[in-house]
Every structure is written in structure tokens, then in C-alpha cells.
Design a protein around this nucleic acid. Structure first.
Lengths: 150, 150
DNA sequence: CACAATTGTGGGTAACTGTGGGGAAATTTG
DNA sequence: CAAATTTCCCCACAGTTACCCACAATTGTG
């Protein structure tokens, strides 16, 4: 299982190519075949899954109940815009324009490692997102960390 | 479980490399694979976790629900500044510049062993912090120790 | 106390990383 | 079907990183 972490400021060239940070690449399993699945994320960002992680996700989606409205929503969001992309010789993936547009990404990106997937943000949007949630950090932190300390 | 203790004045060279004090290294489990995770601490300092200790923390994050917006936020914030670093031949780790900047660290550091993690401070900041908390020490000590005796 | 091993610090260099661009092949469009 | 556009593979290059070696100071040991 992957454990991506860290945040990286990278650029996207005018061909829509984005480098996968070396520190994230290190955690990609060879099972991923240098292939990634890019899709819409929650919030205004893109999710990038190594192929093997994506397959696991697909399996757990299949297990979801199709009668549960929330589950249906989850499936639609993830599956609708999913695209596969393979690393080129410089370990970059190419991101389709419509996905870039969805996340308002132009030439600069903030890349986040979030355990089993990678997120791609417009740096400005990400900063706004961080600022908008500021107060909820401590409350959630307490719940989580308390759990750990006990 | 680790039990780091003590305080050590060390230096950071111009490549951002910091030696892990031998007395702390002694308590690092072999499970850590000579690998550490560096992240922002509370207050103006850095936390350094041996990999095995960090994994415990990570596992409690994995348990969070990806469909809960608050949980998503928490994962992002917590992971965003985490970086892995492996010991080099001289048992040093390399600390990225942005983390050093966050803690206002230049070339001198105070390293603290705090049970399951290690803290890295700018010596000046640490002294200030100590001074600012001086009076609250006794009251905290009382609360904590009392609790223990019960 | 003498000697060996370990510890803390520094520097050189080869390999890797992030970024850009050119051109052939494939695809789309009028 | 020809022209325009997009996609993919290759090359280039500056900046950074990781790995190796070096060495003085400290610690541990018989």
C-alpha cells in the first residue's frame, strides 16, 4: 500500500505534462506499471492514482451498494472523468485539458501526497481551501490524536 | 516504543544535514529502517519520527473516512509537510529548506528527545519558549503527576 | 593511560531531478 | 483527401541531491 506524503510546487508545461515528484515516485509500486489514473477529486482538485491502487478502489466501489444515493454519487464523481496516463521518459504524465480546466489549473500546481493517492491543485485554490477550513483542524486533530494516545 | 530523552546542541551544515545524536539513535528501533519522517511540530519547531513510530500515526489517519470533508482536510494538512529522510553514511538526515525556514533554523539547533519523537528547535526560539512557559511548569507538573498517582 | 572505535562536521563529485523544446507519428477537422 | 492539430518519444541542460571520502574530537575499553 502506498503512503504518499508531502507537498510540492511544480509546473505544468504548455503540453499539459506534469512531473511526478521523485519523492512520490519512490512509493509507487512496480505493480502500477508506470501507469496512473487521473480523475476529478473532491474539492477543486484532481486525484491521481497509481494503477494498482486504482484497481483496489474499483473493487471497493463495486462492493458499494447501488441503492445508496451517497455511494452512487461517489462512483459518478470518480468514474466519470477517469483517464489513464503512462509516464514518459522523464517520468511525467499528461493531463487532459478538460481535467485541468475543471481544477482551474494553468501552469503552476501544488502536488499533495495523501497516502494512497496524489492530489493536484491550483496553488491559489489550495491556499484558499486551507484558509477556509482553518478552525476545523484542531477539533478534528483532537479527535484523531486523542484516539491515538489512549 | 521509543523513549527519547535529553537535549543536545548540534549544528546543521549548508546542505541542510543534521546529525542524529548517538544517544538518541540508540533508542531507534531497527524497524525504523534508518528512516525518519520530518514534519512541522506544534509551536515553532520540527518533529522527527522514526519510521515505525510514524507508521502508527499514519494508520490512525488511514482509518478516517475519505467521504467526510473534515477528515479529508485533516489528512491533507497533516501530511502536507511530512518528508521522509534516510540516514546517510554518517547517520545524518537531510532537512528540506522549507521546513528549516518554518522553524527559523539556520545553522545551530537544539535537539530534544521527547519519548516517541525528536524535536528540532532554533536554540533561541527554544529558550524563549522555555521562558514564556516558566511559570506554568509547576501547575502542569502538578496536574500530570497527580493524575499518575491516582 | 594508551589505543581503538565512535562521533560530529565538512567537502567533492557523479547521478538524478525538474523543465523545456523539436520532430515524427497519429488523430482530428474542414 | 489535404491541412491543421494533437500525441508521443527523443534530446538537452541547469540545479539539486545523494553518496563517497576525510578528519579532528570525543568516548569507550582493556
Amino acid at each position: 500500500m502506498s503512503s504518499f506524503k508531502g507537498s510540492y510546487d511544480y509546473s505544468i508545461d504548455n503540453k499539459g505534462r506534469m512531473n511526478i515528484p521523485a519523492k512520490l515516485r519512490k512509493y509507487v509500486s512496480p505493480d502500477a506499471n508506470d501507469t496512473f489514473v487521473i480523475t476529478r477529486g473532491f474539492e477543486k482538485c484532481l486525484f491521481v492514482y497509481p494503477q494498482d491502487e486504482w484497481n483496489q478502489l474499483e473493487n471497493s466501489i463495486r462492493a458499494l451498494s447501488p441503492t445508496n444515493p451517497q455511494h452512487r454519487f461517489f462512483m459518478r464523481v470518480l468514474l466519470q472523468q477517469a483517464v489513464e496516463s503512462q509516464l514518459d521518459g522523464q517520468s511525467r504524465i499528461t493531463i487532459p485539458k478538460d481535467l485541468l480546466q475543471f481544477a482551474s489549473i494553468e501552469d503552476e500546481v501544488t502536488i499533495l501526497g495523501v497516502l494512497e493517492h496524489i492530489e493536484v491543485w491550483n496553488p491559489k485554490e489550495y491556499k484558499q481551501y486551507l484558509a477556509s477550513q482553518e478552525n476545523s483542524y484542531e477539533s478534528v486533530a483532537q479527535t484523531v490524536l486523542q484516539k491515538k494516545e489512549m
